[in-house]
Amino acid sequence: MSVYKRLEELGVELGAMTAPAASYAPFVKHGNLLYLSGHLARRAGQIWKGRLGDDISTEVGQQAARAVAVDLVSTMHATIEDLDRVKKIVKLTAMVASAADFESQHIVANGASDFFAAVFQGIGPHARSAFGVARLPLGSCVEIELIVGFE
């Protein structure tokens, strides 16, 4: 089944590629790999601010991670123009703005990982790192970067 059909079934509409918030490229293509720079969590077009374990629950953090994943797919689409060219979601790195005692960064990252598994099915499961940080740019609660193999 087409990636676009799965997105439609999930009720996901892709947006435009998000512009970088500083001096960096939103993506780099090298051979058959696409490196997507960190994307910040957004809600209703605005940075989704907060810290897990302080003012954001794990469940809401998962929603934020899923929102980042949708944004990453929008960037993929804008970059390679056809999501059916994706051959493997290779590596996901999730950074979670966390209170000092918050220990569920890996559960927050599941919001993105589960989304990629659903959309890209057999090629969606990936290697992953998830870790907590004191603060993220612009006060975002989650930032995710991604490496994708494509043809």
Rank of each mutant, 00 (worst) to 15 (best):
S37A: 12
G53L: 06
V90I: 07
Y4P: 09
L72C: 06
A67E: 12
A41K: 05
D114Y: 07
K91V: 03
E13M: 08
I144C: 00
R43T: 11
T93I: 08
E151L: 05
G53H: 05
G149E: 15
M1E: 14
S2E: 14
R66H: 10
K49C: 12
D55T: 10
T18R: 15
G53S: 05
A118F: 03
S140P: 00
D114G: 10
A21P: 08
Q105Y: 01
L14Y: 05
E9P: 05
G53W: 04
G149T: 12
I56P: 02
S57R: 09
R85W: 13
D71I: 08
M1I: 12
G139Q: 14
V119E: 01
F102H: 11
S98M: 06
E13W: 01
S2G: 14
V133W: 00
A21L: 14
H39E: 15
L72Y: 02
R66D: 06
G139I: 06
K49V: 14
D82L: 00
S23N: 15
S98G: 11
G132V: 02
A25N: 13
G111E: 06
L40D: 00
A22L: 13
L33V: 13
V28P: 07
R85M: 15
V68M: 03
G53F: 04
A109K: 02
E103K: 13
L33T: 14
A112Y: 04
H39L: 13
G45L: 06
L136D: 02
A67I: 07
H30G: 07
L52I: 09
T18N: 15
K87T: 15
T93F: 03
L146C: 08
L14N: 04
G124I: 06
A44Q: 12
Q63I: 04
A69H: 09
V86M: 02
V86W: 00
L36E: 06
R6N: 03
Q46A: 14
E59K: 00
E81Q: 12
G124P: 02
